[in-house]
């Protein structure tokens, strides 16, 4: 079973995403801040990260850059989700080389498709 780390500071979103992912046969671990995300990623070695951009103690963008600098985590695919969606942020994320970008509120089917394509 593939393992996905869901990082978001909103517990409702984390709960909902977790149940959706479990229903789709993924194992789920969670984090609620930038620092926490980094620690959990190293501990859990997930197959994929769903990363919120605005979080306390380190934004999603900062977390991403950190992960990419670390040889142990640099190959973990990342899908960004944000309620601050704009053309600028979407472009920034795609320039950085992230696997995906989803604006909140999202259509879970599209998100699941994206995950499926990335890690199977």
């Amino acid at each position: 079973m593939k393992k996905i780390l869901v990082a978001d500071d909103n517990p409702d979103i984390v709960d909902l995403l977790s149940s959706r992912l479990r229903a789709n046969q993924y194992e789920v671990v969670t984090a609620d801040s930038g620092v926490n995300t980094l620690l959990r990623t190293i501990e859990e070695k997930p197959d994929l990260l769903i990363l919120d951009i605005k979080m306390p103690s380190g934004t999603g963008i900062g977390v991403y850059e950190n992960l990419k600098r670390n040889s142990k985590t640099k190959d973990i695919p990342v899908i960004f989700i944000t309620a601050y969606a704009s053309r600028e942020i979407e472009e920034q994320v795609s320039r950085m080389g992230a696997e995906g970008f989803v604006a909140k509120p999202f259509d879970a089917n599209i998100l699941m498709e994206m995950i499926q394509k990335t890690i199977g």
Binding site: L17, K104, A108
Partner: peptide, 13 residues
């Protein structure tokens, strides 16, 4: 958008 996300996903599930 944040609460809308939670509402939409709850209903959708």
């Amino acid at each position: 958008r944040t609460p809308l996300t939670a509402i939409r996903e709850s209903v959708s599930q």
